[in-house]
């Protein structure tokens, strides 16, 4: 592209309007930024759970394995889930305390599915700092967390100790009287 003529100034009549001249550069810069963002999005989204992980995001569980007064621990999405078959005494004690003073007030009815009070299903991770509470220990016969002494009752509600919230309830549905799907 060797030019033999040295141009001094653009010929008259060409728009030398700074607004018009800068516009193309603004468009180019904006398009470049847009392109970079569009390229960056998949690189960020790939860290989200992949399809095979999502496929395991729900599990089915057979309740007939859990005898009255016992709990079974099931692994769901990498966390323990307590499936507790409550005795009538445990249910009564929980209902009795529905309006007792507690850090995270909740009725027993809000903690189980309607018509199925004997099944208490909670995520077995202490809401304080994440340890797994021990079954049946503590003043209320619910759970006792060995790490810092949080005490949960038979509805999984926090009654004593440093934990701020009740044990979390996972999403679950009854597929039949003896089968649940968690997640």
């Amino acid at each position: 592209m060797a030019n033999t003529v040295v141009e001094t100034s653009p010929p008259a009549g060409h728009g030398d309007d700074p607004n018009r001249r800068d516009f193309i550069h603004i468009v180019a810069a904006t398009a470049a930024v847009g392109g970079v963002v569009a390229f960056a999005w998949p690189l960020i989204d790939e860290m989200n759970p992949s399809a095979d992980v999502l496929a395991l995001s729900s599990i089915e569980f057979d309740l007939s394995k859990v005898t009255v007064g016992q709990q079974v621990v099931v692994k769901w999405q990498g966390k323990p889930v307590f499936v507790r078959h409550r005795t009538p005494k445990e249910i009564a004690e929980a209902v009795h305390d529905d309006h007792a003073p507690m850090k995270d007030p909740a009725t027993d009815a809000s903690r189980h599915k309607p018509g199925k009070p004997e099944w208490l299903i909670v995520i077995g991770v202490c809401t304080h700092l994440g340890c797994v509470p021990n079954f049946g220990l503590g003043d209320y016969g619910g759970w006792l967390c060995p790490c810092h002494g949080s005490v949960y009752d038979t509805a999984g509600r926090i009654r004593k100790g440093p934990a701020p919230l009740n044990l979390f309830l996972p999403d679950y549905t009854f597929l039949s009287d003896t089968k649940i799907k968690v997640g």
């Binding site: 998949p42 690189l43 989204d45 790939e46 989200n48 992949s50 399809a51 095979d52 992980v53």
Partner: peptide
């Protein structure tokens, strides 16, 4: 696994 299951893995 990257090609099939990871989000946009095939493209990366």
């Amino acid at each position: 696994h990257i090609m099939r299951d990871v989000n946009h893995g095939w493209m990366i």
